[in-house]
């Protein structure tokens, strides 16, 4: 199971908490799937107590909390949001998002490194939402990140692992760094493929929350993660282009 900043996490599934049909379904999705980390955010308090009731529900889940800086487009905004999240959620973990484009929600790699540097110096344990770029990964490690979270595909698309070569290359380049596929997954098979590539966990939200049955889908993802991780440990056969018979050829009857 993954270890993030010296903390053992009991599951490879990290779940977002947005867009569920109801709080009850959110709670059931976490409990049935055994997800180990919940991502949360900060938004303007409307004065209706929604923030307090949400916080109580998340605390009752008994999972680790990972606040995000979702929607932040500048370093300053992300750093300020991280500090505000630290105070509210009482954790030094931060899922760092510095968004570079409003349509693709692609991370801004330059702002990301700068914000990660500042927050690491401020004592945060940064989980950077990043592209699968290996040079960017190196820069983020240089400034103190000890977990990396490359995207599978743009947030909310459900397209899966858009660049398998890039992700395999990133995994191979930094084999000892805990890595989470964050965003873009739509199906449990995508999660299984991520595990087969050697990633440590996945973080998803829309694929579960927007499924017809979010509780069943969260559970399906949990099973897929188990299967993929087991397959990775089982050392899969290398693929080949030519067919090779699995039934012995020697001893075959001469019938023609």
């Amino acid at each position: 199971m993954p270890v993030f900043y010296d903390i053992d996490i009991p599951s490879r599934l990290m779940l977002g908490t947005a867009q569920y049909p109801s709080p009850r379904i959110l709670t059931d999705a976490f409990r049935q799937s055994g997800a180990g980390i919940a991502t949360v955010s900060l938004r303007r308090e409307g004065g209706d107590g929604a923030g307090a009731s949400f916080w109580q529900m998340i605390r009752d889940l008994g999972v680790a909390i990972l606040p995000n800086t979702a929607g932040c487009h500048s370093v300053r905004e992300a750093v300020t949001t991280a500090h505000m999240a630290q105070e509210v959620f009482q954790t030094d973990w931060i899922k760092l998002e510095v968004i570079g484009h409003p349509d693709t929600l692609q991370p801004d790699p330059f702002g990301l490194v700068e914000a990660a540097r500042i927050l690491t110096e401020d004592g945060f344990k940064v989980f950077p939402y990043m592209t699968e770029d290996g040079i960017l990964a190196g820069r983020l490690l240089d400034v103190g990140c000890r977990v990396l979270m490359p995207w599978g595909a743009p947030i909310g698309t459900g397209l899966g692992l858009n660049n398998p070569y890039g992700l395999r290359s990133l995994r191979a380049q930094f084999p000892d760094v805990p890595m989470v596929i964050d965003a873009g997954l739509g199906l449990p098979s995508h999660a299984a493929a991520a595990m087969e590539m050697g990633f440590d966990a996945v973080l998803l939200n829309t694929a579960v929350a927007k499924a017809g049955d979010p509780v069943a889908m969260a559970t399906a993802f949990a099973h897929a993660l188990q299967a993929g991780a087991l397959a990775r440990r089982a050392d899969p056969m290398p693929p080949r282009d030519m067919a090779a018979p699995s039934t012995p050829v020697i001893g075959m009857a001469r019938l023609v």
Partner: peptide, 25 residues
């Protein structure tokens, strides 16, 4: 930070943001 709120003076035209826990992905 909450520890500094008592000493934080407000002036005409200030912009105050009050944020609370919310759902997030």
């Amino acid at each position: 930070p909450s520890s500094a709120r008592a000493g934080q003076a407000l002036a005409e035209g200030d912009r105050l943001e009050i944020l609370a826990p919310m759902q997030g992905g």
